[in-house]
Amino acid sequence: MSAPVADMDAIVSVRDLQVQFQTTDRHATVKAVDGVDFDVRRGETFGIIGESGSGKTTIGRALVFLLKPSAGAILHNGLDPLALPRRQFQSHRRDYQIIFQDPNAALNPRMTILSSVLEPLELAREGNKAERLKRAHEAMDRVGLPQDIGARYPHQLSGGQKQRVVIARALTLRPKLIVCDEVVAALDMSIRGDVLNLFAELQRDLGLTYVFITHDLAVVSHISERIAVMYLGRFVELGPTEEVSERPLHPYTQALLSAEPRPLPSSMRGGQRIVLQGEIPSPIDPPSGCRFRTRCQYAQPLCAEKTPDWRELARDHWVACHFADRPNFSPN
């Protein structure tokens, strides 16, 4: 499974990915991502969910080579981009874009909206001036921004409009895959829907693939075909959205689902909550064996001794828990 052989459908293949950081005092190593395997299939939306600090953003940045893996491999269409000559590597990277939560950080407050949208094309020296302008206008059109907004500055736009500008910017280079890192987290509820609809529409029309990173269960299960659940640098579960959100196999996924506040009248809310004790431990010195064991209500001595295998328990449905296949394990 760790051999760098890719699935035919895979636009991205990740094999035993590890990313480590030195803490600022340089005395310790943070294992932000610590051995993750998955494929992203062409045209799908691959959701990654997990608590803050679990390593989601680090994976996203590694996928587009904003940072270099400490170990393991990331293949784009079966090829290792790091093996490409420098120039080719730079042009290859345009196919893989990333968008973050805060559009204010992505937009220069002193640049007009149109200049911001044009900038990636200019940096990439795409076409001549007229062609670049045409593509920038096309991209703005695609995300539903009227042309006259081009002359404005970021502070004159609403949060939802600014996020559209950031999406337009990413689209100008005609990427194949976009990593979306908490892209709707800062938006108000009534606008969030519009932006999620826009992502879905762009995917349909342009054949885009998304890696959709969020801490919001409702958002991720709305937009994704598959969901990976991350805990302390590892995946603990991965499967089709319906499976993971309706028949979760891992105790952590079950706890996450049950912690989600439901906007329903009490008569419909039903069910008991699993309230997890404590908080996510430090990735500098993670628990031995199963990393979730310090908060898991089913933990056994084995869980401290042995790291659970990453197993495909049902078709396409993967889980890392020693006991996930036991009957009556799930508290349902």
Binding site: D194, L196, S221, H222, I223
Partner: peptide, 15 residues
């Protein structure tokens, strides 16, 4: 407009 209350993958109503 809440994604919790809309059919999965469908168009989300917005205001």
């Amino acid at each position: 407009s809440l994604p919790h209350l809309s059919p999965r993958h469908g168009k989300l109503p917005s205001i």
